[in-house]
Amino acid sequence: MTLSFPNQSRSFDKDRNAVRFTGYDGMFEVPFYIEVDALARVLSQPLSVQDCLTAFDAERTSILDVAREVYAHRKLTSYTLTAANFH
Rank of each mutant, 00 (worst) to 15 (best):
Met1Asn: 09
Met1Phe: 11
Thr2Trp: 04
Leu3Thr: 07
Leu3Ile: 10
Pro6Ser: 05
Asn7Pro: 00
Asn7Tyr: 09
Asn7Gln: 06
Gln8Asn: 04
Ser9Ala: 08
Arg10Glu: 12
Arg10Ala: 12
Arg10His: 11
Phe12Met: 15
Lys14Pro: 12
Lys14Leu: 11
Asp15Lys: 14
Arg16Glu: 07
Ala18His: 09
Ala18Asp: 06
Arg20Thr: 07
Thr22Phe: 02
Gly23Gln: 04
Gly23Glu: 03
Asp25Asn: 09
Gly26Val: 04
Met27Arg: 11
Met27Asp: 09
Met27Gln: 08
Phe28Met: 00
Phe28Lys: 06
Glu29Asn: 00
Glu29Pro: 01
Glu29Asp: 02
Pro31Asp: 01
Phe32Ile: 00
Glu35Trp: 01
Val36Arg: 13
Val36Thr: 10
Val36Gln: 05
Asp37Lys: 01
Asp37Gly: 12
Ala38His: 03
Leu39Gly: 03
Ala40Cys: 03
Ala40Ile: 02
Arg41Asp: 09
Arg41Glu: 06
Val42Glu: 05
Leu43Tyr: 12
Leu43His: 09
Ser44Phe: 08
Ser44Asn: 14
Ser44Ala: 13
Gln45Tyr: 05
Gln45Cys: 12
Pro46Glu: 15
Leu47Glu: 01
Leu47Phe: 06
Val49His: 00
Gln50Trp: 06
Gln50His: 11
Gln50Tyr: 08
Asp51His: 13
Asp51Pro: 10
Leu53Arg: 13
Leu53Met: 11
Leu53Gly: 09
Thr54Glu: 14
Ala55Arg: 00
Ala55Glu: 05
Phe56Thr: 10
Phe56Tyr: 15
Asp57Trp: 06
Asp57Gln: 15
Ala58Phe: 11
Ala58Met: 14
Glu59Ile: 07
Thr61Met: 08
Thr61Pro: 01
Ser62Ile: 14
Ser62Asn: 12
Leu64Asn: 07
Leu64Tyr: 10
Leu64His: 13
Asp65Glu: 13
Asp65Tyr: 07
Val66Ser: 14
Val66Trp: 04
Val66Lys: 11
Val66Gln: 09
Arg68Leu: 08
Glu69Val: 09
Tyr71Phe: 15
Tyr71Ala: 13
Tyr71Arg: 13
Ala72Glu: 13
Ala72Ser: 14
Ala72Asn: 09
His73Ser: 07
His73Arg: 08
His73Lys: 05
Arg74Met: 04
Lys75Asp: 12
Leu76Pro: 00
Leu76Ile: 00
Leu76Asp: 10
Thr77Gln: 15
Thr77Ala: 13
Thr77Ile: 12
Thr77Tyr: 12
Thr80Val: 12
Thr80Glu: 07
Leu81Gln: 09
Thr82Phe: 01
Ala83Asn: 02
Ala83Trp: 00
Ala84Thr: 02
Ala84Gln: 08
Ala84Trp: 05
Asn85Pro: 07
Asn85Thr: 03
Phe86Met: 05
Phe86Cys: 04
Phe86Arg: 10
Phe86Glu: 02
Phe86Leu: 08
His87Asn: 14
